[in-house]
Design a protein around this nucleic acid. Structure first.
Lengths: 270, 270
DNA sequence: CTGTTAGCGCCTTCAG
DNA sequence: CTGAAGGCGCTAACAG
């Protein structure tokens, strides 16, 4: 099979015997064009199997209707569920979506953000726990600030540490504290904590909230009774989210108890 | 906050006191540049928070490392799982992914394919059952053929009807037939079929396979005993895949029995 | 209404 | 090793 070249607007215009501008106009409905010409253009476009080059358009218009979505892992039901909502919204608003799965690698996350900045996405959505990594976190903040400085919008879910952005935040710390208090109320006094990888902020938050609430009641947990699962639990049919092994908060992907998680929506001052 | 303009390669070049070409070269590592200039360019780029415009690049290079993925619904564990694998592969090969969820709307599917053609993705992946719709199916075929004619690669999962493309195909018909025979072997003689929406090819295939196997044994199913769930079953915590209500094949998202599904991988002659 | 003409931001020969 | 210039495909003023 021969690799034909994609036909361009110029080709269409020529084939229709009109100017480039006219062709562009009818194909975009930008301005009214005589029925005769319009018809010829449309016919030519169809005949040449014309498909407007989105890059050229984006460049010429210097804008594009695409948003970037970055999550830890679309395969995770938690993220998949959110992604689903994003896709529905995208459909509704006729937006394109470029997706990134970091697989919980902070470097990959950084790579994605800059790649999306390069793509000039009009908005960026970061979903999932941040990382406990001073330097990288700082780098991310800078990158996002640059992005916002040139008109980009960024929103985050479940991460807040030093990111100036619209955010929806599950109250991990509070939720874990509630759990601790509930357990205390039941009369328990000795605890062990099975937590997730401590490089995830959400994990740290939950453990801290849990321990603090205990501490307030004069209960302490032995260091050795806090065990950290090095990575998401995968010994199940479907991978669970990063912190699913944390006993101090239900897995994000489990059915949401009536009162959990409490979510705080924090708009970002522009 | 003021909406600053993104700085361009030109800006960087000017700030570094070099030509556009040189700036381009150091930023792309395309050719060797004197250490002095190289340093000035890099510094300028950093200072200006330069981010190469991907669209401009794609246009100039007339190529881009992005692939398109279209599925029925990323929120569905079945598709989420596949998407996960796609993302991993994309990461490995440094490919960008633009994602589409059709929510089982054939029109939206068509919109996505042409949108991705416009984006000049280097490959397109269609995941999930096709639709039983002569006309639309034909339209899709034409669109994909045009895409392939200009160098595009297309692969499909779980759909075959008249699409010339690399494919991995679960053997719905055969699997359903197997099930029927197994049931017959158990001594059953009266059947009812709870199936999915009949506009999905996979559903039709399964039902047909099931009924045919029964027919071969001289067993028929009353028309009224074949009930079609109009849409995917959603009365569960997580949405199941389109055909999950079909009794003649396990839901795609359920743990895979040792011997199911049988998958056929059909490479596409180029 | 229709055509001409600049760019959009970057890459890439082609000379020097 | 470095710079100048043409072009990628399309849009958006401007003139007719």
């Amino acid at each position: 099979m021969v690799q034909q070249a994609q036909s361009t607007l110029g080709d269409v215009a020529k084939a229709a015997g009109v100017s480039l501008a006219t062709a562009s106009r009818v194909l975009n409905g930008t301005a009214s064009v005589g029925p005769a010409l319009r018809d010829r253009v449309k016919r030519a476009a169809e005949r040449l199997a014309y498909s407007p080059n989105a890059h050229a358009q984006a460049l010429a218009r210097s804008s594009s209707r695409t948003v970037g979505v970055i999550c830890h892992d679309v395969g995770d039901p938690y993220f998949a569920g959110i992604a689903r909502g994003v896709m529905r919204a995208a459909n509704r608003h006729d937006l394109q979506v470029v997706l990134g799965s970091t697989f919980r690698d902070p470097d990959r996350e950084a790579a994605y953000t800059s790649m999306m900045r390069g793509h000039r996405v009009c908005a960026m959505l970061l979903i999932g726990s941040g990382f406990e990594d001073r330097e990288r976190q700082e780098g991310l903040r800078r990158e996002l600030d640059r992005y916002r400085a040139t008109g980009g919008r960024v929103a985050v879910i479940s991460r807040h540490r030093g990111l100036r952005a619209d955010a929806v935040l599950p109250e991990n710390r509070e939720g874990a504290a509630d759990l601790a208090r509930a357990l205390l109320g039941l009369g328990h006094r000795r605890f062990a904590v099975l937590s997730g990888p401590p490089l995830l902020s959400t994990v740290v938050d939950r453990v801290e909230g849990f321990l603090e609430a205990l501490a307030d009641a004069g209960v302490t947990v032995e260091r050795e009774d806090i065990v950290e699962a090095p990575s998401p639990v995968t010994a199940v049919t479907r991978p669970l989210s990063g912190s699913s092994a944390a006993v101090c908060a239900p897995p994000a992907s489990s059915p949401r108890p009536t009162s959990w998680p409490r979510v705080r929506s924090r708009p970002c001052a522009t």
